[in-house]
Amino acid sequence: MTIRAVLFDFSGTLYRLEKDGPWLADLVDGEDLVGEHEVELVRRLTAPVGPLDGLPDHLQDAWARRDLDPAVHREVHLAMFDRVGLPAHTAEAFYARLVDPGNWRPYPDAVQALRTVRDAGIRSGIISNIPWDIRTALKRDDALELVDDLALSYVEGRIKPDPELFRLACRRLGVAPEEALMIGDSVTADGGAAEVGSRVAFVEPLPTAQRPTALLDALAAHGVR
């Protein structure tokens, strides 16, 4: 069936949480929370689904629901930071960096991929488990005008892989799920699109400098050039 819409994930697919310089070294004293350890902490905090190691059982439910409610997202992150020994003021500053659109970078081919879809006469949408408005980042990179619709978990009250979230995104784009291609980085979360009949392509959530053409390659593999 002809592809009439392409759905993109945001984190790890179109954009990645990255910043120049360290995340914590200018905020804390102590070698145990900087360098490779802080990189691993950021990686764990941005994993799309699943429990978080080191978080007590009574907070795991809040962790699972974090992308449905910005307040819950903040509270459960601060609880995690407290467990790894961050002072309260440092935890607040670190959290602010995680949700700062300025620290989210587009992959080298992200805007070009969106433009390729638009130029092919195909509708596009972003479907993301996220607790903040990504439009600031998209607008900064002249990408917002290339996207027809956003289905964000904290707005819609659903998180991937909930099949209804994919159905909703397709409905708003005016296509049947079978006419959509979902591109994401998580087999568990983004792979849920297959349950409603959509085609699915996966990319690796590598550092942006290490993944120059994966989105364009995924589109080309499905005949979108």
Results as ranks from 00 to 15, higher is better:
Leu78His: 12
Arg171Tyr: 12
Leu144Met: 01
Leu24Lys: 01
Thr2Tyr: 08
Arg65Gln: 00
Val155Thr: 15
Ala218Val: 10
Val42Ala: 07
Pro163Val: 14
Val196Ala: 05
Leu146Glu: 05
Arg105His: 13
Tyr95Asn: 03
Ala214Gln: 06
Val99Ile: 14
Leu45Gly: 00
Gly85Tyr: 05
Pro56Asp: 04
Gly12Tyr: 09
Ala143Asn: 03
Asp119Thr: 05
Tyr107Val: 11
Glu36Arg: 09
Asp119Ser: 15
Arg140Glu: 04
Glu164Ser: 06
Val42Cys: 09
Val187Asn: 12
Val196Gly: 05
Thr90Phe: 00
Arg16Lys: 11
Leu215Met: 07
Glu204Val: 13
Arg16Phe: 07
Val196His: 12
Pro106Ser: 01
Arg65Glu: 10
Leu59Arg: 00
Ala71Arg: 07
Tyr154Asp: 02
Phe81Val: 10
Val196Thr: 13
Glu92Ile: 07
Gly184Ala: 14
Leu173Trp: 03
Leu215Thr: 05
Asp217Lys: 07
Asp9Thr: 14
Glu178Phe: 04
Thr188Arg: 15
Ala47Met: 14
Arg66Leu: 01
Val84Tyr: 06
Lys139Ala: 07
Val99Arg: 01
Ala25Phe: 02
Leu144Pro: 04
Ile126Val: 13
Lys139Ser: 11
Asp61Gln: 11
Val203Arg: 06
His73Pro: 04
Gly197Ala: 13
Leu59Met: 03
Lys160Met: 13
Val99Lys: 08
Phe94Pro: 00
Gln60Asn: 12
Leu52Glu: 06
Lys139Ile: 07
Tyr107Ser: 01
Val42Met: 07
Tyr95Leu: 12
Leu168Phe: 13
Leu14Val: 03
Ser198Ile: 02
Ala201Tyr: 08
Leu55Cys: 09
Glu178Cys: 13
Asp29Met: 03
Gly125Asn: 00
Arg44Asn: 08
Arg167Val: 14
Tyr107Thr: 04
Asn103Ile: 01
Val6Lys: 00
